[in-house]
């Protein structure tokens, strides 16, 4: 487990220092944010994690996004709850909710919970701004900080470890 966590941290550092395009990193972060904002749900969160690995986005940043946003997402709950309740109560959408509610698997996403629905809508709305924000942040990092940070001992150690070497080989950078 510790090994996995360390490898994930390494992969984050490496992602920032690799040839992964800023768009891939930003897309990973934005995709992960969808699962980060909403309350944990096996079906929904599992689907997002699956997408993180199946799509050509940076999965490390996706997982980082889930981890960070999960810590703070509860702050949005009061508004998410109100928004979700409003959306679920819209008469025009009611037939859709009833249809989904009576489907075999869909109800297990807990879409009929006000916080779940509100958080999902907020997550979808924030995904695009987050994408552009993280894209800009990666560009800025690479332009201003990358060279300086590469001189840090810990980073040099991280980049020199066996895992890193292997990773770089897999990524074609070694």
């Amino acid at each position: 487990m510790i090994y996995w966590i360390l490898s994930q941290i390494q992969s984050l550092i490496l992602a920032l220092h690799s040839k992964d395009s800023p768009r891939q990193i930003a897309a990973g972060f934005a995709l992960g944010s969808l699962a980060g904002w909403v309350p944990f749900n096996f079906l929904f969160s599992g689907f997002i994690v699956l997408l993180l690995y199946l799509l050509n986005v940076n999965s490390g940043f996706g997982l980082l996004s889930i981890a960070i946003l999960s810590l703070f997402s509860f702050l949005l709950d009061p508004w998410a709850g109100q928004l979700g309740e409003w959306i679920l109560g819209l008469p025009s959408l009611k037939p859709l909710w009833i249809l989904l509610y009576n489907l075999p698997i869909f109800p297990f996403t807990r879409f009929n919970n006000s916080v779940m629905m509100g958080s999902l809508v907020i997550a979808l709305l924030l995904a695009t701004p987050l994408y552009f924000l993280s894209y800009w942040a990666v560009l800025q990092y690479r332009a201003r900080w990358k060279t300086k940070i590469e001189q840090w001992k810990i980073i040099r150690w991280a980049m020199a470890s066996k895992v890193v070497t292997l990773w770089m080989r897999v990524k074609g950078n070694g």
Binding site: F74, D77, M116
Partner: peptide, 14 residues
């Protein structure tokens, strides 16, 4: 576990 608001679960016709 999450300390998240349990919200309101709306039950539709079923």
């Amino acid at each position: 576990f999450h300390g998240r608001d349990p919200g309101v679960t709306i039950l539709f016709d079923t």
